Simulated scan of single mutants.
Amino acid sequence: MLSKKHLFALIVWSATLAATGALADVAQRPADADPLGAAAQSGSEETAIRRVLEQFHATHVPLSQAMAIAEHLHDGSRTADISFEAFDTPVYRVRTIKNEHVWENVIDANTGSITGKEIASTLKELDREDLAKVIALKWIKQEMADAVQVAERAAAGSALAGGLIRQDGKLNFVIVVATGDHLKEVMLEPPKVGKQGSSRH
Rank of each mutant, 00 (worst) to 15 (best):
A68C: 06
Q28H: 05
H6F: 12
E100K: 14
S44F: 10
M67T: 01
I165G: 01
D25V: 07
D75P: 11
K192D: 08
A58Y: 08
I49R: 08
V102W: 10
T111S: 08
W139S: 00
H101C: 10
K98Q: 14
S77C: 03
A39T: 00
L188P: 09
S158P: 00
R153P: 04
R93I: 14
Q142A: 10
R166H: 01
L23M: 12
H6P: 00
D75T: 15
Q149H: 14
D88Q: 13
A68N: 11
S44R: 15
A58W: 13
L7Q: 03
V176C: 14
V150G: 07
V61H: 00
R153C: 09
N110A: 05
G197Q: 12
S64N: 14
R78P: 01
H201K: 06
N172T: 02
A80S: 05
T20N: 04
N99K: 15
A151D: 00
T16G: 15
V106D: 05
L171P: 11
L23D: 11
A136D: 10
N99T: 06
L160N: 04
H74K: 09
G169F: 00
W13D: 15
P190A: 04
A109I: 05
A24V: 05
S14K: 13
A19T: 05
E189Y: 10
R78Y: 03
